[in-house]
Amino acid sequence: MKVKKVTKGPFTIAVNETDPIVLSVTIGNAQIGGNVVRIGSKQIAKGEIHDLLLGSGAELIGEELTIITNVLDVNPASNKISITHFFFNGTPPVFSYPFPGEDMDVDDNGDVLSLTATYTFIKK
């Protein structure tokens, strides 16, 4: 079992000060993944991330968000890994990895892909 590490970002996300910012993470290709979510150095959640309230736009502007997503290849038919970070009330709302033309496959069934993506929030 090998761990392939991929780092992305930092990307900027524009938000309104009054809007709640909500995060969901989707693992595609019938694989299984787990997450660690940090704002600055503080861990705010781990495990499956569905509709996680990160805070209001005012609270997040200027902060750095780190999402670590580890995906285990459990699909014997494919070694492809797909991770989507969705920010409700964020612009852009969706970051879908791999980006077009990029390779985020693992070598063998049973390998792990670890994606560390960072985002900073700015005022819309």
Binding site: G34, E48, I68, N70, V71, V112, T116
Partner: peptide, 15 residues
């Protein structure tokens, strides 16, 4: 169980 095991820093994964 797999999700729980994966929800950590990559250097701490129990392979």
């Amino acid at each position: 169980d797999i999700i729980t095991a994966l929800s950590t820093d990559p250097d701490n994964l129990d392979l």
